[in-house]
Write a protein that binds this DNA or RNA. Structure first.
Lengths: 124, 124
DNA sequence: TCTGACTAACTAGTGACACTATATAGTCAT
DNA sequence: ATGACTATATAGTGTCACTAGTTAGTCAGA
């Protein structure tokens, strides 16, 4: 289901937003976030990508951390979205929609050969 | 019109695709690409971002280069999309649509608290 | 004439962050 | 005990955007 691997630049752009969105469903931990995102079609999220990101979000005050014992396995670091994080999610989500709309508008625009070539330097 | 500045990670993700799309309208040069993208709502594209990108695309064989005298000003380095570049644009455009659909599907998904928390380690 | 504004391409230095690979440690089945 | 799976984390490397310039041409106004 989640076999596809997207460009790392694209993942770099959207991963943070997707992680915040995942956290909005309730407290969870890194490994489970990676599993859910993979299931949703984002490809495999490596620990070396995810954990530093979660550390940055903790430092930013967007998430809070609580250790809990796991059900048969090592301890889990449960992460919850703070109010600041929830605000951030809302802001980023709205911006993301605007941004992707802007990109799609450009991609779908009519091919007008030479649109940008008349730049005003042509004074005559 | 182009006052908004998007997150640099987002621009990093989409700039290449947008540049290829701009080139698909016909040969043009760096400064004009930056001006057109700004007009289309992408914010200001700095030379330090754009020119290295164009150099990479030239090295990748996606664009070809030709110097022409400018209309009252320094020489312009006109860039054309190669056939390889055109293929790349088509591929990336299709992938971009898939990717943004995947992200939006996640953002719009119903909030189901604890979705990913039952991961199979809970054996009993 | 020389000063600044605009056009146009390009580079050095720095920093952010993903990637590869690895470490640590717990549980469980063979 | 050996390997597979769960779970978090870090070191080293490389890519690339950002800041802040340089070089160079044209043109308008002091």
């Amino acid at each position: 289901m989640g076999a596809k691997q997207w460009s790392s630049d694209w993942m770099r752009a959207a991963l943070g937003l997707c992680v915040l969105r995942t956290l909005a469903a309730g407290p969870t931990y890194g490994y489970a976030i990676a599993a859910e995102l993979e299931e949703r079609g984002f490809g495999t999220i490596k620990g070396g990508t995810l954990y530093p990101l979660l550390t940055r979000y903790d430092a930013a005050g967007w998430i809070s951390v609580e250790w809990r014992v796991g059900a048969g396995g090592p301890e889990r670091k449960y992460l919850s979205l703070t109010n600041t994080g929830l605000d951030e999610l809302a802001t980023q989500t709205a911006n993301w929609r605007d941004f992707t709309d802007t990109v799609l508008a450009h991609l779908d625009s009519t091919l007008t050969s030479g649109t940008a070539l008349t730049m005003g330097t042509d004074k005559s």
